[in-house]
């Protein structure tokens, strides 16, 4: 399984990564190998196994709707690149949500 440069570029764009040409080429190879490893799963016989989204034998883990404490504001803002008016300040982004 190999992937091409445009697929690497697409993944990099989605992850907001800027890659040099060398990195793109190296990742193209590495990602191809990872996909190849997953290809091995296709050799397994899964005909009698029902599909699942979860591999641990757990279900219905829920909590009661009880409010507990939160962090102090300065702790919340501790890792912020910049702070303004008690908020995290980032470079302007266009609203595309």
């Amino acid at each position: 399984m190999s992937i091409d440069r445009s697929q690497v570029d697409h993944a990099a764009e989605l992850a907001r990564l800027e890659l040099s040409d060398d990195e793109r080429e190296r990742l193209r190879g590495e990602l191809g190998q990872i996909l190849q490893a997953f290809e091995a799963l296709n050799t397994l016989d899964t005909e009698h196994i029902s599909p699942t989204a979860q591999v641990i034998p757990l279900g219905n883990v829920e909590r009661d709707d009880v409010a507990a404490g939160s962090l102090p504001q300065d702790a919340v803002l501790d890792n912020a690149p910049r702070v303004e008016d008690g908020q995290i300040r980032v470079p302007p982004v266009l609203d595309e949500s």
């Binding site: 919340v76 303004e84 008016d85 908020q87 995290i88 300040r89 980032v90 470079p91 302007p92 982004v93």
Partner: peptide, 8 residues
């Protein structure tokens, strides 16, 4: 400067 502020 223009900026975006985040309230979590």
């Amino acid at each position: 400067a223009p900026a975006s502020l985040i309230d979590v």
